[in-house]
Design a protein around this nucleic acid. Structure first.
Length: 279
DNA sequence: CAACCGCCTG
DNA sequence: CAGGCGGTTG
């Protein structure tokens, strides 16, 4: 059980079909989201989970600089301009390339690369890694109640079993717990502040509430949170405000009705989240 | 019984 | 976040 917190040893990869999820040119635009999720601009987990052995012990400078470059480019391509890479997915691109007449060349290139960096091809994880946790947190911006099936399809590099599934589901349960605690906290705050009309309560990107949430699920702040999440957050806050205002919080299970509303507001998680192996 | 959810703890 | 546990659902 190589879960995350106990021992952060390098996960032992198991080579799989190199064709499906290999990304030969790490810095190409279409691969930026992947790397962003995989390593993050300042991720401490990078060297532990995905870095090639040769770079494992490199000095901080030689590691940090590239990430900064990546993060800057990524903000331009995927965030600010809203050019979310097409759902055609990166995997498909890679496959296409490999299926064209240049197969032999591509294969030899792939071999050369995987020789230098065995971690380049898809590695099936025994347990969940810090990278998976980061990815799960970002997925939370879209879905608060992912089904186990959804989880399975969005973590293709994870070998699922009862424990892993439970752990992933537990993660989202924990995410929700934090989410709802914040909601109740800010709802009560609004009431304490004397806000009388629900319409005076709003959630924008510079709201304290959003900052708290973003800090929790997107600490590196390198991911552009979808607008829909802001909407759902506002709705949730309103639900709490209304309930508390109506003194419904006296009932032991007053939150249930709120949960019932929010659980129906999940969005589809972008295809890009399926693509990468160990992001 | 299995799969989840939410609450509470550490 | 992980463990435990009661409670719900099918």
């Amino acid at each position: 059980m190589s879960s995350i917190t106990p021992t952060v040893k390098r996960p032992y990869p198991i080579h799989q079909t190199p064709f499906q999820y290999n990304y030969s040119a790490p810095l190409h635009d279409t691969h930026i989201l992947e790397h962003l999720l995989k390593y993050g601009p300042h991720s401490n987990f990078a060297a532990l989970s995905c870095m090639p052995p040769s770079m494992d012990r490199t000095s901080p400078e030689s590691v940090d600089l590239p990430w900064d470059a990546i993060s800057m480019r990524s903000k331009v391509t995927s965030s600010h301009l809203g050019h979310h890479s097409r759902p055609s997915s990166l995997g498909a691109v890679a496959v296409d390339n490999l299926c064209l007449p240049h197969v032999k060349i591509e294969c030899s290139e792939l071999q050369n690369m995987t020789e230098r960096n065995p971690y380049m091809s898809l590695n099936i994880q025994e347990g969940l890694t810090p990278s998976h946790l980061k990815k799960a947190k970002l997925m939370f911006f879209y879905t608060r109640y992912p089904s186990s099936n959804v989880l399975k399809t969005y973590f293709p590099d994870v070998k699922f079993n009862r424990c892993i599934t439970s752990q992933l589901i537990k993660w989202f349960s924990n995410f929700r717990e934090f989410y709802y605690i914040q909601m109740e906290k800010f709802a009560r705050q609004a009431i304490a502040d004397g806000i009388r009309d629900v319409k005076d309560i709003t959630v924008s990107r510079d709201s304290e509430l959003f900052r708290a949430l973003n800090m929790h699920y997107n600490k590196a702040n390198d991911f552009h949170v979808p607008d829909r999440f802001l909407e759902v957050a506002e709705i949730t806050l309103h639900e709490f405000y209304n309930a508390i205002s109506a003194s419904k919080d006296s009932d032991s299970s007053w939150k249930k009705s709120i949960y019932k509303v929010i659980c129906k507001m999940d969005s589809e998680v972008p295809e890009e989240f399926k693509t990468s192996s160990c992001m």
